[in-house]
Design a protein around this nucleic acid. Structure first.
Lengths: 339, 339
DNA sequence: CGATGTGATTAAAGCTTTTAATTAAAGAAT
DNA sequence: ATTCTTTAATTAAAAGCTTTAATCACATCG
C-alpha cells in the first residue's frame, strides 16, 4: 500500500495551506475558482481519499444512518428498505442495516454501535417488547429516531405505518360480501401493535356483519411461508370447517395455499384466501393472491424523508402517520359455495 | 441533550488521567484491578459512549466491514448474508450492507464510501463487468476484499462459490436419468462467470448422454420469480415441446411452475422442473421443488472467516474455493411420459 | 544503594474543519 | 503620488477524542 494521501499531502505538493485545500474540496466560495480547480485536479491525480472519521470527529456529523428491522429477508421489510435506500442515496448518506430478529438485546447493541459510530439518525421497526429507555438513549445522545411498520405505545416518536385495523377489515369485508360466514384468521401475534390492530380489524368487520366471533378460528403464530404451510394442517382440521381465511400477510397466505394444495384442495375454489401487503410475489402466485396493498414503499419513503428533514433542522411533528390500505382483488377468493 | 461524556470527563471526576481510563476500559493489565473497576463503574454511571471515530482515527481500524451483493432481497443472497452476519457478529464487527443492482458505478461509489469510513475489509459478489481497478483501489488502500458467488477472471482474489458447472450437470443428469430428452434451460445470463459455468454444465451433461444441444432450448434472461413466470409462455410455445426444464435458480423454477399451472398444465407431472440453490422455500413450493443445494450458508460463513483471518494477519491463499453442490430430489420432477 | 516491578502519567499523533487573523490587490480620496 | 478603505484570497491555529510509547514515582527486595 502506497503511503496515505491526506489534505496536507495535496497542500504541500501545491505549496499552499491545508485550509485552502479543505475549503476548495467542498466548493467553498471563499477560494478562487482556478485555485479550486487546480486543487481538485491534484486531489484526483494523487488518488486522495476523504477521511470521514477525521472530518466527523470535528463536525460531529457522520453521514451514517442506521436502519433496523425484524428481518431483511422478509420481503415486506425488503420493500420498505428499498424505498429508504433510494431516498437516502440521493442525499449522500450511508446506511447501516441490521436485523434484530425481535431480540431486544440485539437491537440495543445495534443502537449502541450506531452511537459509537456517531450515527446521525436511525429508522427502526422496533423489536417486540422494546423498552422506551433504549430509544431515549438514542435521543439523549442526539440521534433522532423514526419508527416504521410498528409503533411503541409509550413513546411519541414519528411513526409511519399502514392502517392495519382498516386494512384487515377491507379483506374481511370482501370475504363476507362473497357470502363467507366461517372465516378463520391465520398467523400473526398479539405482542405487537400491528398484531392487535389486525385482529381488531377482523373482529370489528365480523361483528358489524352480525357474525359471531369464534376464538377457535384464530390460529396465531405464523408469519412466514413456512408458518402458513404448517398452519394449513390445523386449519383444515377445524371442526367449524371454515370456507375462507384471512391471513396475516402474503407470505402466510401463500404458504397456506401451498398447504391446502398439498391436501388436495384447490385454493381460490374450495377455500378463499386473502393475503396482506401486496408483495410483488402476490400477483404471480397460483392462484393470484387477493390481498391488501399496504404501501410499504410509501412508508419507507416517508420515513426516510422525515428523518432527512429532521436532520436538516426542521421539526416534523411527532406522532403516527397512517397510510390508507387498498384492496387488490385477484383469483384466490371466490363466492361461497356449500360443500 | 446533556453534554457529551468523554474519556476526560471520567478522568476528571475520578481525578486520574485519561490514559488510565482508556487502558482500563479495554481491560489492559497495565492498570490495577480495583482502579479498573472504579473506572468502569463510573463510565457506566455517567453513560459514557465510546467514540469509535476518534479511536479509529488513531488506530486506523474501524471495525467496519462492507458487504455488497446484487440484491439483498434475493433470498439466495439473503442466505449468504445471514451466514456472514452471524460470523461477523461474533467478532464485534459492524457490517454495512449494500446492493449494487449490477451497476458498476453504484458498486464503485460503495467502495469509495467504505474507504472514506476506513472500512477494514469488504465481501462482495461483484457486479457484472466490474473493472479490476475498482478492487485494486480497495487493496491499495489497505482494504482486503473477498469474493462470493461470482468471480472476476482478471483478479486473483480469494473467492468462495458453488461449483456451478458440476451442480447444473447434477440436475441435468437427474432429468436425463428420468428419461427426458428434450430439456430446456431457463434463465440466467452469459455475462457472469456463474452464468457461463452453468450453461456449460448443462451442455456437458447433454453431450455426455449423447443428446444433441439445441440452442433454441435456451431461454436466457430470467433471474426472478417474475422472470420465470414470464418465461413460461415462451417455454410452452417452443416447437420442440420440451418435457423438462433446468432452471437458473429456485426463483425462476417457482415462477416457471406458476406460469405452467396458469396454462393449465401440472408441473411435476406434465413438465419436470429443476431449480437451483435449495432455498428454504423450495421445500414448501407446490409441487415441492427438486433442486440443487448450493451451500449458500457455507459460502457466507467461509468468506467471513477468510476475511477475519486475513484481518488478523494470516495470509489465506488466494484463489477459488469451490463448494460441492448436492442433489435434492422432490416432487417437481417425474419420469418421462410420451404425451 | 542499585535493581526490579507495579501502577499511573505525559505528550504526541492521527486528519479534518473552521474561525479569526493576515496578506494582497484594487479602488477611492486627498 | 500617497495614503486609506474595501474586498478577495489565503493561512495559522485550535478543536475534536482516543491510543500508545516513553516516562515517572514509588515501594520492595536483595
Amino acid at each position: 500500500m502506497a503511503q496515505k494521501i491526506k489534505l496536507s499531502t495535496i497542500a504541500e505538493t501545491l505549496g499552499i495551506s491545508t485550509a485552502t485545500v479543505s475549503l476548495a474540496l467542498r466548493d467553498s466560495p471563499l477560494v478562487a475558482v482556478n485555485t479550486r480547480e487546480k486543487i481538485k485536479d491534484q486531489a484526483r491525480a494523487l488518488g486522495y481519499i476523504y477521511n470521514r472519521r477525521a472530518a466527523s470527529l470535528r463536525t460531529s456529523r457522520s453521514g451514517i444512518i442506521g436502519v433496523v428491522v425484524h428481518d431483511i429477508m422478509n420481503p415486506f421489510y425488503g420493500e420498505i428498505l428499498k424505498a429508504i435506500e433510494s431516498e437516502l442515496d440521493r442525499s449522500r448518506h450511508t446506511f447501516i442495516l441490521s436485523n434484530h430478529y425481535d431480540s431486544v438485546e440485539k437491537q440495543r447493541t445495534f443502537i449502541e454501535t450506531l452511537l459509537q459510530l456517531g450515527g446521525d439518525g436511525v429508522i427502526m421497526s422496533p423489536a417486540i417488547g422494546t423498552p422506551p429507555e433504549d430509544f431515549e438513549l438514542a435521543e439523549e445522545n442526539g440521534m433522532p429516531a423514526i419508527l416504521v411498520a410498528r409503533q411503541i405505545e409509550a413513546l411519541d416518536l414519528p411513526t409511519f405505518r399502514g392502517d392495519d385495523s382498516y386494512g384487515i377489515s377491507l379483506a374481511t369485508n370482501h370475504l363476507i360480501s362473497l357470502g363467507h360466514r366461517s372465516i378463520a384468521m391465520i398467523g400473526g401475534t398479539d405482542q405487537t401493535s400491528t398484531g392487535r390492530d389486525r385482529y381488531q380489524g377482523y373482529v370489528n368487520a365480523l361483528r358489524k356483519a352480525g357474525i359471531e366471533v369464534d376464538p377457535d378460528l384464530r390460529i396465531p403464530g405464523a408469519r412466514s411461508k413456512q408458518g402458513g404451510f404448517e398452519a394449513a394442517v390445523h386449519f383444515l382440521s377445524l371442526p367449524q370447517k371454515p370456507t375462507a381465511a384471512v391471513c396475516w400477510n402474503d407470505l402466510v397466505a401463500i404458504g397456506l395455499m401451498n398447504g391446502i394444495s398439498r391436501a388436495g384442495l384447490v385454493p381460490g375454489r374450495d377455500i378463499s384466501v386473502t393475503g396482506y401487503d401486496d408483495l410483488e410475489e402476490a400477483a404471480i402466485a397460483t392462484p393470484a393472491l387477493t390481498t391488501v396493498w399496504n404501501g410499504q414503499a410509501e412508508v419507507g419513503r416517508l420515513a426516510a424523508r422525515a428523518l432527512l428533514d429532521r436532520l436538516a433542522g426542521s421539526h416534523e411533528p411527532d406522532g403516527i402517520h397512517l397510510i390508507k390500505p387498498e384492496m387488490r382483488i385477484r383469483q384466490s377468493t371466490a363466492p361461497y359455495k356449500a360443500r
